[in-house]
Structures are given as structure tokens and as C-alpha cells.
Simulated scan of single mutants.
Amino acid sequence: MVSHLTVAAEPRFMPGASLQSRLLGLGLRHTVRPVIGAWARLPFEISPPNLVDTVARLLPLHEGTRWRTVHLTDCSAEWLRAKGVDESTDTGAMVYFHGGAFMTCGLNTHRRLVSRISFSAKRPVLNVGYRQMPLEPILTSIRDGVDAFAWLIDQGYRSDQITIAGDSAGGYLAFSVARAVMDQGWGRPAGIVAISPLLDFDDTRKRAHPNAHTCQTFPLHAITRLSKVARQHDTRRGVDGQRTCPVDMPLADMPPTLIHIGSREVLMADAELMANRLTSAGVPCELQVWDRQVHVFQAAASFVPEARAAIEEIGTFVRHLAQHPYQVAAPAGSVRKPSRNTAEAVPV
């Protein structure tokens, strides 16, 4: 495989696209992609009601999944364990941020995916229903993520036992929350898992990328429209200029990272850039490029065999973190107990 971007770490290409995955891609290209494209061309701003999360309540769960509602300071979450997973603080935990362009999806849409990740990683997972646009700007979503991390520490988990994961917009949150908790002096998380992550709201690199028009889920102009909407919400809430995209954050002290991306995704540009910058900063990063897979194909694990294989890769990565923790010397006394006043961690 030839990478589209010169990266310090060679991407790991995961070959093969099953009939199921190709059918999924074809279906998305002729249903979801046109709808998103139409939204992006509307001459006025509209945020669709989050009906998809309501309907997702009807979806069956991975066998043996257990969860309970957790009330964080300003949003809800759920403490989820797959079959055979206990809550021992000896093994660690995960926190998960769903995707949905910061405007849609939620706990219901991602419960099945989170359950499968819990089962593969052998970890309980805090699935976070963070606040979203249009009611709140992205910085508020990050604040809710920091609060979720603090909740896990309150349960007895150390920062270096907590893996932060997310897909699409949730990948943006995974890096942003990791940066915020480290800047607070709470310690370094165990690792980051980013699935088809949106990491850069500047569309310049996406426009120049070979994948600019090959994505089966998102047309490029939809990413451009999302960036404009996010800036408008920042301006309305008086936080314009206070949000830094993950690709532009200080990265040298970041934890080990696993990034999954489909080979035709428009967000390939973001994944390659982040892998390049992390590795150049000396941070272990594995970029897995999945042959012809769609955006967050892992959510289709009941149908697509490559999705099940990808979730196994995530589980292996998380379990490996516990067996071989990444050590970087921290200044004496630099790790302190979290304060539940998460406003300190995010400049809102």
C-alpha cells in the first residue's frame, strides 16, 4: 500500500472487503450520503431532531450486556459491562464518546458497539451522552468528557488505567479530553482509540487528498458545512478561538494511540496527519487502514466480518496497554487528584 501522506510510521493496511461490507457501502452511498449532502447545501441552518437515537432503543444488544445509568454533572452516561466483564479496578476501564457530527446519535445508537468493545477489551466502559450542538458548543462536549473521566477516577481507577475511545466526532473528543485531563495535572491516560476520527475542522487538506470525493458516507462539502456550523456556535456562545483541533494540540506527552480508518474515507486526511504528528513527536501510534470499509464500519459487527475483526484489534490494543504500559517521566508532584469543577479543565 502507498500512503497518501508521508508518515513517520508506516500505516498497517488491512486487506479485503467482504460482500457484506461492499453492500453496506453501496447502501450508504445511495441513502445516507445524499441526505447529508442535501443538508449541507441548505441555504439556512437547521439541526435535525435526534430521532435516530430514539429509534435505536429498539436494537438488540450483545448477549449478556449489563448497564446502569450514571448521572454526571451536566449530562447522562451509562456504566456498561459486556458478558464476563467485571468492575475490578485491577484491570482498568474505558470511556467512550459516540460520533454523530456533534449534533446527533447518542447512548442508544452506540450501545451495541460499546458492548462489543467492552467484550473484546475485557473492560467496563463509561458510555457518555455528552451535550451537543445546537444547544451547546463543542467545548461543552469536551467539558462533559472531562467530567466523565473524573467520575472514573472517583470509582477508584487511576488515569493510567483508563483508555479513552471514540468514533468520528467522538474521536475528536477522545484526543481533546486526553489533552484536557493531562493539562489539569491528573496524569496520562492509558491510551486512545480513535475510530474514523474527525480531527481537523480545516478542510484544506481534505480537499487536496485523493479521498476528497471517494467517501461513501460524507461528501466533502458536508465537512465544510459542519466546520461553518461549529464556528457559528462558538461565536454565539462567546468561545470563538478557544477551541484547538486535535491535530494542532501539543502531542509529545500523549498516550499510545490506535487509529482506524476506511481506505476511501474523506477523513483519511485527518487520520494520516495525526499519525504523522504523533509519531514525529515520539508517541507510539498505529494507523490501521481498512480496505474499502465505510465510516465507522465497526458499528455493523452483526453483519460485516471486517467489523468484528476490527473490534478484536481494538481489544488487543487495550489489553496490551495494561501488559506493557507506556512510561514517560513526569515532573515530581505533577499528578494531582481531579476536581469535579471541570470548568478548570476547559476554557469556556
Rank of each mutant, 00 (worst) to 15 (best):
H4E: 15
T6V: 13
A8V: 05
E10V: 13
P11E: 11
F13V: 03
A17K: 06
S18I: 02
L23P: 11
L24A: 15
G25P: 05
G25W: 15
L26V: 12
T31L: 14
V35P: 00
V35E: 10
G37D: 10
L42C: 07
E45D: 13
S47D: 05
P48W: 06
P48H: 03
L51A: 04
V52W: 00
A56M: 14
L58W: 12
L58I: 12
P60T: 07
T65Q: 03
R68P: 05
T69E: 10
D74M: 09
C75N: 12
A77V: 08
W79H: 10
R81I: 01
R81K: 10
A82H: 08
K83Q: 06
K83L: 10
G84P: 04
D86G: 14
T89P: 08
D90R: 15
M94I: 05
V95A: 08
Y96P: 09
Y96H: 03
H98D: 00
G99R: 05
G99I: 00
G106L: 00
T109N: 04
R112Y: 06
V114Y: 01
S115V: 11
F119W: 01
K122E: 09
R123E: 04
R123C: 06
R131M: 07
Q132G: 00
Q132F: 00
M133G: 01
P134F: 03
E136V: 01
I138Q: 01
R143L: 14
D144C: 06
V146D: 12
F149S: 02
F149P: 12
L152R: 13
I153W: 06
I153S: 11
Q155R: 11
G156T: 11
Y157G: 09
Y157Q: 10
R158V: 04
S159C: 13
D160S: 14
A165G: 03
A165Q: 00
G171T: 06
Y172I: 04
L173D: 04
S176N: 10
V181P: 11
D183L: 05
Q184P: 09
G185N: 09
G185Q: 11
R188F: 13
A190W: 04
A190V: 06
A190L: 03
S196Y: 09
P197K: 02
P197G: 01
L199P: 06
D202H: 10
H209L: 11
P210S: 13
N211A: 04
A212M: 02
H221S: 15
T224M: 12
A230N: 08
A230G: 05
H233A: 02
D234M: 09
T235Q: 14
R236V: 13
D240I: 13
R243I: 08
T244A: 07
P246I: 08
L251Q: 01
L251G: 13
M254I: 01
P256A: 03
L258F: 15
L258C: 07
H260T: 12
H260W: 07
G262A: 10
E265I: 09
E272Q: 13
L273P: 05
A275P: 07
L278K: 05
V283E: 07
V283A: 02
P284A: 00
C285W: 02
V289R: 02
V289M: 03
D291K: 14
Q293S: 11
H295C: 07
A301I: 09
P305M: 07
H320S: 02
A322S: 14
P325C: 01
P325L: 04
V328T: 14
V328M: 15
A330Y: 04
P331E: 04
G333M: 09
V335L: 08
V335W: 02
V346K: 07
